[in-house]
Design a protein around this nucleic acid. Sequence first.
DNA 1: CGGCTGATCGTG
DNA 2: ACGATCAGCCGA
Length: 195
Amino acid sequence: MSQNWITFCQKDPVTVAKNILGAYLIRETSEGIIKGRIVEVEAYGGFHDAGSHISKGVTARTKIMLDTPGLAYVYIIYGMYHCLNLVAHTENQAGAVLIRAVEPLEGLEIMKQRRGLSVTKNVCNGPGKLCQAFGITKADNGHLLSEQPLYIVKGAPLPEEQVAATPRVNIDYAGEAKEWLWRFYIKDNPYISRK
DNA sequence: CGGCTGATCGTG
DNA sequence: ACGATCAGCCGA
């Protein structure tokens, strides 16, 4: 039910990021179901977080970070790739959670075909890669991620000792915020984007 | 308008 | 280590 989902996402982005680890990302396509387990995420905050898009200003692109928690925030990066985020923040705040890597579970053939690969390795172990595998584009921007045909289903809670926290990737411009331990991944999972 | 920048990826 | 490649943002 969507209200449960919105409530789940209406917490600070760091909490939502940790809570969404181990959940399932599901895409229904005309060719079949694609499913994966979320194994790596990053939290992005509001105006105080120099690594966050919205800290540079509220624009047509970034204003969704202020919108309803649980919406998809999809943007194009480097003119070539898409990234999927989940809007996540408390009342009157801004924030999002970047889905960085997924462990492929179902729809392997469709994913490999879209990625142009013959083996499962490297199909979903990066934010741009998983969007290509799942067929996620700007057409999905603003979609509530509890609803078909693109949705997230919560998994079993993870023991804290299975979760690693590190600085976020590729935000060298972000000053002190680049040191914050806002990247989370499932330890020893072979499908994370990098060590 | 023109100029820059980038929450990436594949290749080497 | 580096280049591809262009939406998004800003300043004029």
